[in-house]
Computed example of a mutant assay.
Amino acid sequence: MSAAPHREPGEIFGPRTTLFADVLSIGLATTLSSLPLITAPAALSTACAVLRGVSNDEPATAGRYFALLRHRLRPGDLLAGILAIAGTLLVAADLALAGAGLPGARLFAIAAMTVTAIALTVALRACSRPESVSDWPTALRAAATDTVRDPAGSALVLLAVATAALCAWMMLPLAFLVPGPLALALAGVARRRETAGT
């Protein structure tokens, strides 16, 4: 028989519901922090770091999120943001060219979408790695290795992105909260990879 979930004094709903509320508040904080666009990788990486700390009984609050983010806006983080913007613009331009009716456009569109899915998976897995807090190149190398060695985890990342996009498309206000559950999914995939390794 399982024990009743432990509740802190003043806690109304229990730890799971509290974590859900914290994830949503971190999602909103991540959205606000990503508005300059150039800060989006650092914002998502910080969200993953905060949610990763839950397993060590660290608080997953918006206050802790902003405290960690203040130390994140260094040149490497801004460069990651510039590369993310450039990659997004390149993908948009490629898809626009593919839709222009050029010869071989269908094959080109399939190849472009495949490369985009792989690049997106590597980038998101890099955000979920602890190394992204201080060293983006190391995080990207490790994420590329994880993407190849853990295809199930990569599929889970793409499924999380598709779910987030579908939620945002179905109900626009959810778009402001979606980064929190996405970061939780990325942290979960990273945790799954770590436990599989041990």
Rank of each mutant, 00 (worst) to 15 (best):
L182C: 10
M113I: 13
L68C: 04
T61C: 10
A126K: 05
A117T: 02
A175I: 11
H71L: 11
V91G: 08
A42S: 08
E131C: 09
N56Y: 07
M1S: 12
R141T: 11
V178G: 02
L44G: 03
R72L: 05
V157S: 03
H6F: 09
D135T: 15
A187I: 08
G10A: 07
V54K: 06
S2V: 09
A60E: 10
L186W: 00
L172V: 14
R7C: 10
A86S: 11
L89H: 15
A164D: 00
L51C: 03
F176Y: 04
F13D: 02
L44N: 04
P137Y: 06
S128V: 11
T30V: 02
L32Q: 08
S154R: 02
A111C: 13
L140C: 04
F13Y: 13
V23S: 02
I118T: 11
A40H: 09
A152I: 15
A93V: 11
L79P: 09
A47F: 06
L172Y: 10
G153K: 12
L89C: 15
A162K: 05
N56S: 12
A112K: 05
A93W: 15
G27R: 09
L186C: 07
G76H: 03
L174M: 08
A42Q: 01
A175L: 11
E58G: 01
L124D: 04
I82W: 01
C127T: 03
R149K: 07
R129D: 12
L78P: 05
V178R: 02
F108G: 08
A185T: 05
R106K: 10
A187E: 05
P36L: 12
I12E: 08
L24F: 15
T116N: 01
A111K: 10
L78Q: 07
L90T: 15
Y65F: 14
A96W: 13
D146S: 13
G188N: 03
A47K: 03
F108Q: 07
P173R: 06
E8F: 09
T46V: 06
T121F: 01
L172G: 05
C167K: 05
D135H: 12
P9L: 07
V54D: 09
P151N: 12
A111E: 04
L78Y: 02
V50N: 00
A117K: 00
L177Q: 03
R52N: 07
T198E: 13
A92S: 08
